[in-house]
Nucleic acid binder design. Structure first.
Lengths: 347, 347
DNA sequence: CTGAAAGCGCTTACAG
DNA sequence: CTGAAAGCGCTTACAG
């Protein structure tokens, strides 16, 4: 590959001038620019990314970390990533999938991270990724609330989890449901902690008790391991005391689908016998389901976009005031999986 | 951040020695190693990735390019990426999501690609990404067949598309289906070209004609644009001449789901009236569907793994003979969406 | 607007 | 096993 010296020599200018033509950091006369560009085309020259990075101290890449075990993307992750890529590329940044599985690696990554900043998805309690970013002095934003000790003032993007649970419960209670089974995310995730407490609070505000077994947590972060979780929990809890549960809130679409199958196998119907509400699901899957599932749209793509913008403002790339904690709106999309509670003895 | 000079000075060794302790390219006495490591810990030192890259000429990253427009990942992409990440990290490589949307970008990427090699997914006819890799002299492997001019001898990973169509058609014909509607991928994709010709050939081999309207192509690469394609095509073709089509082959899970809805809206059932076969679908979605869908498992995760291994052997990281064209096995997974053709007038 | 020179933080022959 | 020096390919003050 041709290098800057080759171009400089052939175009009869200095390296600095060639540099300026490409970086456009200083003006160049159109005459010189043309000459340099012609020679560059001729030699197939393009500035070496690494060499530039070394002096500018910018890699023009951001890391996207999804917790290991969770790297089997859900539709939520997928759409989030779409938002990130689109917005990052708008600013000229690339996206490094910074997912280091715990699996045994042959060569450990014993260098600095080649990124300018990071997006930390789905934080858990005492998330070690946050500590890594701190020691590496890498600017980052989190998607979701962080609970690490001694670490305040972090930028984050999130939905309003309390509002989410408030709206869902109001919606379901408004339809006469009082015994609601909540199939929550894994209990290590901060989001599950927030949603659990909000769920209990809203129910209590309506004078309703929440028995312990009415909140279940996804056993693992791994999708292959929780595939049947929704099914088994539904069979277990509804099978024991069928009539008590009249509504189920599922944390994601896969869980919802397996709940749906369990309900069918129990010879019950949705929404006739059981109302099913999905917190975060793939739009197309929700629509194609039978029945179409009522869900809370978390706007994952918008979460991705906003997290990049927040990071860019931390990196000084994006000007202007940006709140350190961006809340992305969420809203209920009614389809056909929730109906009035028909079990009279509850009303 | 501390640099190598700081460590060298404090540990009273040369920079070269510090370098060796971290790179392990030359042996160091345990005494010196300990001293260097202690100082490094104390100073929070880690070798600068960019500086190392500049001299080693390795970025330790591979690019993963998914055609723009297609960057709204399907389950196939997702599982493929999982395979790539897992295998790449095993070799100490990171994965750069090298998806440059055509959307207007503020800052163009006017430098070399900071990657050692690339994986080019879902090639289309005259794929410009292939040309880019060539001029940038970046080793790459493709996932799927490439049809660019003057470019033979490329490494690729693929399923055996002819065998896939052969097996699917045999399976369906064996169940008495002769009028099969094939909802193929976008016609620009090389895979759709291969599957189309194989489909026609196998049908002809059985003495069956394939009318032109029995092969349809996904109109766009964008998922948001083809969401309803399966539905509309099904309504259009089956609605006109209901009885003629008794089986449908859908290219992916989303298309299959929307076909399912269309069939339902036509007051027909699967597999009673219409048999539905999915070529490439998300396992969990296929299982959760109602009815569970019979599909061809393409092993996307294995495709990812193999493409990384092939790339690694090109980079000289992986020793041994590796065929330049790896074929990943595919197999039919019977579930419950295909049955014997019950329309007697065809048998 | 352009050039000459120093420097970014490492690794790598070369020598011992 | 260790050190001194050159060099990877750029950018950036500094000077003009």
């Amino acid at each position: 590959m041709a290098k800057i010296d080759d171009v400089a020599r052939l175009a009869k200018v200095s390296k600095g001038t060639v540099s300026n033509v490409f970086s456009q950091k200083r003006p160049t006369s159109s005459e010189v620019r043309e000459r340099v560009l012609n020679v560059s085309r001729q030699l197939n020259y393009v500035p070496n990314h690494t060499a530039r990075s070394l002096v500018t101290k910018k890699t023009m890449a951001i890391g996207l970390t999804i917790p290991h075990g969770n790297f089997f993307f859900s539709a939520f992750h997928t759409q989030f990533i779409n938002g990130v890529i689109l917005e990052a590329s708008y600013f000229g940044y690339r996206v490094l999938l910074d997912i280091i599985p715990t699996q045994q690696v042959k060569t450990p990554f014993l260098t600095s991270y080649p990124i300018d900043g990071a997006i930390v998805m789905s934080p858990i309690t005492e998330d070690e990724r946050i500590n890594l970013m701190h020691v590496g002095q890498i600017p980052f934003v989190t998607v979701g609330r962080v609970m690490n000790k001694n670490m305040d003032n972090m930028s984050s993007v999130d939905n309003d989890n309390h509002k989410i649970m408030y709206n869902i419960c109001e919606y379901l209670i408004g339809k006469g449901h009082t015994n609601i089974l909540f199939l929550n995310a894994n209990e290590l995730m901060t989001v599950s902690i927030d949603r659990k407490s909000s769920f209990i609070k809203v129910m209590n505000d309506h004078g309703l008790d929440v028995e312990e077994h009415m909140i279940q947590h996804k056993p693992a972060l791994h999708s292959s391991e929780y595939m049947d979780y929704g099914y088994e929990e539904t069979i277990r809890i509804l099978g024991k005391q069928k009539i008590e549960v009249t509504a189920i809130i599922a944390d994601d679409d896969r869980t919802a689908f397996s709940v749906l199958n369990a309900i069918k196998d129990l010879n019950l119907t949705v929404p006739g016998d059981i109302s099913l509400f999905v917190i975060c699901g793939d739009l197309s899957m929700m629509v194609q389901s039978n029945p179409p599932l009522t869900s809370m749209d978390l706007q994952p793509s918008e979460l991705g976009t906003q997290s990049v913008r927040l990071l860019m403002s931390q990196l000084g790339v994006l000007q202007g005031e940006l709140s350190a904690n961006v809340i992305v709106d969420s809203k209920i999309i009614e389809r056909n999986s929730c109906s009035m509670n028909s079990h009279r003895h509850y009303s």
